[in-house]
Design a protein around this nucleic acid. Structure first.
Lengths: 111, 111
DNA sequence: CGTATATTCAACCAAATGGTTGACCAAAAC
DNA sequence: GTTTTGGTCAACCATTTGGTTGAATATACG
C-alpha cells in the first residue's frame, strides 16, 4: 500500500531536507560540507541524507573517505505528475523558485 | 522557519489523504461519504480532513448538520513551483495521473 | 607507525503521527 | 420530545520522527 509517493513527499516535508536539495542544485557535495551551514550535528544531517537517498532524491557515492551527494531530480517526476493532475500550474516560474531558495537556504556566513 | 511547504508536503505524504484528494477531484463530498470507502473510523478520517484543511488543500463548509469538503487545488501551486525548480517535468501527463488514481483510490465495492 | 578526518552506528530522548474508543453536541426526522 | 444521524472531542496507545551524544570504522596524512 505504501508506494514511493509516500517516501518522496515525506522527504520533502522537512525544511532541512529541502534546503539540502537546493544546495545540491548548485553542485555535488561531500556530507561534511552539506552539514556545514546547519546548526545541527553531523549525525543528524547524515540521517537526513539517508532519508533523501531512500526516497531516490539524491544518490551517494563514496570516493576515498568522502561520500559525495548528488541530486537526482528525476525522482521528483512522479510526484510532479501526481500534483499536475490537480491543476495546470505555471510550468517553470524561476522567479518564484528563487524566492523559495532565499527563504529556505541556510544562511551561509561567508561573503 | 516552518513555512507552508512543510504542511502541504506532509499532508501529501499520507496515502489516505492523497486518496481523499483524488476522490474530491470528482465532486464535493460530505465527511461521512468521504469516510465510507476506508476501513478506518470516522474520527480518523475527520482528523485527516483537518490536516488537509490546515494545509489549505481542501475547505470545509457546514450546511445543516453535514460538513461539505471541497478540493482547493490552488494550494498545490507553491509546492508545484518548488518542484519544477528542479527540472522540467511533463506539464500534464493525464495518463500517468490516472494510473496513480487506480493505485491509490480505495476500492469502492459498488459496481 | 600514529594521528587526524570523514562518516556512520547505537542507544537514547522528546515530540509528533496515525490510529482506536466512547462520550458528546447539533441538526433532522419521526 | 425522543431518537437518529453527522461529526468532533478527549483520552489513550503504539510507532515514527528528528534530534542528541559517544563509540566505532575506514581512509588519508606525516
Amino acid at each position: 500500500m505504501s508506494n514511493d509517493l509516500d517516501t518522496v513527499f515525506a522527504a520533502l516535508a522537512d525544511p532541512t531536507r529541502r534546503a539540502i536539495l537546493a544546495m545540491l542544485l548548485e553542485d555535488d557535495m561531500a556530507v561534511t560540507d552539506v552539514a556545514d551551514p546547519f546548526e545541527m550535528s553531523l549525525a543528524a544531517i547524515s540521517k537526513h541524507l539517508i532519508i533523501l537517498t531512500k526516497a531516490g532524491l539524491i544518490s551517494q557515492e563514496k570516493r576515498g573517505r568522502v561520500k559525495w551527494c548528488k541530486l537526482e531530480p528525476d525522482a521528483l517526476r512522479a510526484a510532479s505528475v501526481w500534483m499536475q493532475g490537480f491543476g495546470q500550474f505555471e510550468p517553470v516560474n524561476l522567479d518564484a523558485f528563487e524566492r523559495f531558495l532565499e527563504v529556505e537556504l541556510p544562511a551561509t556566513d561567508d561573503p
